[in-house]
């Protein structure tokens, strides 16, 4: 369970998020939609404690993670797949996953479970992350986050720059995680991709919440999306 309670965030003096509130239940995919620069990535960084909150709270499974130092947040069970992947490029696939496993002392069975979802990574085991293809890098970024057995998973544009088959693979992993009871917060630009997986959709604009709707409502009436995103 992930709850954001009226968070305000600024970079220096420039306030970016204003009273943003969200909640994602276990086994639910909430999709965050907004134009470029709306504050989606900023929201995720704020959840991870990488940006200080001016006010508001972030609560994960009853723990106020916004009161913790940033390095303690993942251990509560928050897996982060950042925009642009941000792998540890000079480290190998194995080492990137080891860093993920370390967070909650996951054993070999956790690793096996993750590799079952991404068998390609096992073949690339000792390869340096920066030499992987874009699709493989996205798999590794996702796998690294799954290695900490998250109960909350944050994915920031996981399908950016991927071909359709890879997008489908990532989409399937996301649904598997939802079915295992993980609360998934997904940022995605492509509206059709969103509508096929999301349970609910939250719109943000200029760092403020607009409405949050069930995905069916959007599937039924595409005009809502166009109104909020101006696409």
């Amino acid at each position: 369970m992930l709850e954001l309670d009226g968070i305000n965030v600024a970079y220096g003096k420039a306030q970016v998020l204003r009273d943003v509130s969200l909640s994602v239940a276990p086994g639910e995919i909430l999709c965050l939609l907004g134009r470029n620069g709306a504050g989606k990535t900023t929201t995720m960084k704020a959840i991870m404690g990488l940006l200080p909150l001016m006010s508001g709270r972030v609560v994960v499974n009853g723990t106020a993670v916004s009161d913790l130092p940033a390095h303690k947040v993942p251990a509560v069970g928050v897996g982060y797949v950042p925009q642009g992947r941000r792998l540890f490029g000079e480290l190998t696939v194995a080492q990137n996953l080891e860093i993920g496993l370390r967070v909650r002392r996951g054993g070999p069975e956790v690793l096996d479970g993750v590799l079952a979802l991404f068998p390609r990574l096992a073949e690339r085991w000792s390869q340096r992350a920066q030499t992987l293809s874009g699709g493989e890098q996205q798999m590794l970024a996702t796998a690294r986050a799954l290695c900490l057995q998250p109960s909350v998973l944050l994915l920031d544009e996981p399908t950016e720059g991927l071909q359709p088959s890879m997008i489908e693979a990532i989409r399937q992993v996301i649904t598997v995680m939802r079915d295992r009871g993980v609360a998934v917060l997904l940022v995605e630009q492509r509206v059709d991709a969103v509508l096929s997986v999301a349970d609910r959709v939250a719109f943000i604009e200029n760092g403020r919440n607009l409405e949050t709707l069930p995905a069916e409502a959007l599937r039924a009436d595409h005009a809502i999306v166009e109104r909020h995103l101006g696409v």
């Binding site: 993942p74 941000r86 540890f88 480290l91």
Partner: peptide
């Protein structure tokens, strides 16, 4: 390994529980 991860990307090190 933790030192190299911190060197490569401080924020991601924090996001993966490394006490930077």
């Amino acid at each position: 390994l933790l030192m190299r991860a911190t060197q490569l990307d401080r924020d991601m090190a924090l996001a993966f529980g490394i006490p930077v």
